[in-house]
Simulated assay, not measured.
Amino acid sequence: MEDTMDKKVHEIYCNSCGKKIETTDNIKREDYLSIKKEWGYFSKKDGEIHSIFLCESCYDIWTKQFKLPVKVEKQTELL
């Protein structure tokens, strides 16, 4: 019998659509983009740390709006 008390559930939500992305023991059940930015002296946000998460669907919608496309490289070895 597996002890469910040992498993920690981390709730992550997409900042754009609000969708819940659940992971168990830091294992992704669905992939997402995580961005953490520490703003510096030359910004209007000096001293602030911003963190966002985007689900794959919202990432696709967001990047389609870019003037310059995202650089995509294929991995030859997947772990």
Rank of each mutant, 00 (worst) to 15 (best):
D46L: 07
S43W: 09
K19Q: 05
L79H: 12
T23E: 15
M5H: 15
S34P: 02
S57Q: 08
K64E: 14
M5Y: 08
C55Y: 01
G40A: 03
C55S: 01
T23Y: 05
C58D: 04
P69V: 00
T24N: 05
C14G: 03
K19H: 04
N15G: 14
N26F: 12
T23P: 10
R29E: 11
G40R: 07
K45E: 15
E2D: 03
K67L: 12
D3A: 09
T23S: 14
I21F: 07
T23N: 13
N15S: 10
K19E: 12
K44Q: 05
T23H: 05
I27N: 10
L33P: 00
H50F: 03
C58W: 04
D60K: 10
T24D: 03
Y13W: 06
N26D: 08
V70Q: 13
D60I: 00
Y41A: 05
E77N: 06
S34W: 01
M1N: 15
V70M: 11
E2G: 12
E77R: 01
C14H: 04
Q75Y: 11
E48K: 13
I12C: 06
Y13M: 09
I21N: 11
G18M: 02
I52R: 06
I12Y: 11
D3N: 15
E11D: 08
D6I: 13
N26R: 15
E48L: 10
F53M: 12
E30P: 01
L78P: 04
L79K: 08
D3W: 06
T4Q: 08
E56G: 07
C17R: 00
I27R: 14
D46V: 04
K19L: 14
E38N: 15
D60P: 00
K37C: 07
N26V: 06
Y32M: 11
G18V: 02
I52E: 09
P69Y: 00
Q65N: 03
K37Q: 10
N26Q: 14
L68N: 14
M5W: 06
V9H: 07
C58L: 02
Y32G: 08
R29C: 04
K45T: 10
T24M: 07
G18Q: 03
H50P: 09
S51Q: 12
K7N: 08
L54V: 00
S57F: 05
L78R: 10
D3E: 12
M1C: 11
S57C: 06
D46C: 08
K7M: 13
W62Y: 01
I49D: 06
S34V: 01
K71S: 12
T4N: 08
E30V: 08
E73V: 13
T76C: 03
E38F: 11
T24L: 12
F66W: 09
G40E: 02
C14V: 08
